[in-house]
Amino acid sequence: MVVSALLFTVGVTGVLLRRNLVVVLMSIELILNSVNINLVAFSRVHHHLVGQAFALFVIAVAVAEAAVALGILIALFRNRGTVLADELDLLKW
């Protein structure tokens, strides 16, 4: 629980503070991993496997999400030549 809460906090801070979008993506993966730790720990507490099955789903989805994210990032990098968050300023009011 404590480890997972710490990981969650690190992840959220990373998303909010880092400029490099690759690092932001890594931070999101950290949050998902904190969830996995939670699920597996709880599954042990409750003595059944549902939590672990849930964790497997989360891992699969996280992989898919990372693939899509990197795909979009590469498309962006080809067109713009940057992965820094504050240089993406075409859409503003």
Binding site: F8, G11, V12, V15, L21, V24, L25, I28, I31, L32, S34, V35, N38, V58, E65, V68, A69, I72, L73, A75, L76, N79, R80, L88, L90, L91
Partner: peptide, 20 residues
């Protein structure tokens, strides 16, 4: 591209929140 990236980052973050 830019729209997709912004949507994707915040969307993934919000999914992670829900999941937590």
């Amino acid at each position: 591209n830019e729209a997709a990236l912004k949507y994707m980052l915040l969307g993934a973050l919000s999914s992670a929140f829900v999941l937590y």
